[in-house]
Amino acid sequence: MTPFEDGDQDPADRGSGEFAFDEPSPAEAELAPDPPEVTNPADRFASADEDASGPGSDANGFGDGTDLDARTHRTFVVCVFLSNAALLGVSLGAMLWYFRGQTQLGMGISVLGLLAAVRTLQHYRSWQRYRRERDAERDEQIDDVDSIGTDV
């Protein structure tokens, strides 16, 4: 018997007292908390086989964009492109001017970036006006339909 073994250990259990470092002993397993019950968040959504047959829907349920207004889609793409160009121009121009000392090139690229940012803002505001006018037109049409139904 080694000094690290228990004196009251049963000789039949001699080989069973050794555990790997990553394996808990029975006493540790008994004291450990129960593992939590986890639910899959994806189970909340319908599967691809269920309820994906509606118009404008895809397998993920996000839609394929057929119900999206063409002008809204165009505005989104243009604004993303212009804002990325603006960020690139302003940051690259500032770095060229400050770190490399290329004042004319840096200022020119920064001005192009600022112009792209201004054009992004103009394009977005134009889209906002379009949406307001379109919504007002729809409201007028709904009011006209409501007034026709009450005149009878």
Rank of each mutant, 00 (worst) to 15 (best):
T39E: 04
M95C: 01
P41R: 01
V38W: 05
Y98F: 10
A29I: 04
D43E: 06
D64G: 07
M95L: 06
D58I: 08
R131C: 13
L82R: 00
D64K: 12
V38L: 04
E18S: 13
R125D: 01
G7C: 04
L68F: 08
F45A: 03
N60S: 14
W97I: 02
P24W: 12
A29E: 15
L82G: 02
E18N: 15
G54F: 14
E28V: 09
F81Q: 05
V77S: 11
E50V: 13
D43N: 06
S91Y: 06
E28P: 05
H73T: 12
L82W: 00
N84C: 07
R74N: 10
A12W: 01
D22Y: 10
A117T: 00
G93D: 02
A27V: 09
A59E: 10
V80N: 12
A116Q: 02
Q128K: 12
L121T: 05
L68W: 09
A136C: 07
C79E: 12
G17A: 13
T72W: 04
A52Y: 00
F76H: 10
D13Q: 07
L31G: 14
T103K: 15
Q102V: 00
E18L: 14
F21Q: 15
P33M: 12
R74W: 13
P41D: 02
L115E: 06
D8R: 06
L121A: 10
A29M: 13
V118C: 02
W127H: 03
N40R: 06
G65L: 09
R119W: 01
L121D: 00
G61V: 09
S53V: 13
V80W: 07
A42K: 08
V111L: 15
L68Y: 08
A136Y: 03
S126E: 13
R129M: 00
D64R: 12
D49I: 07
L96W: 04
L87R: 11
D135Y: 14
P24S: 14
R129W: 02
V78F: 07
D10R: 05
L88F: 15
R119Y: 05
P35V: 00
G106Y: 08
E30D: 15
F62C: 10
Y124T: 04
G7N: 06
Y130R: 00
D34T: 01
D10H: 15
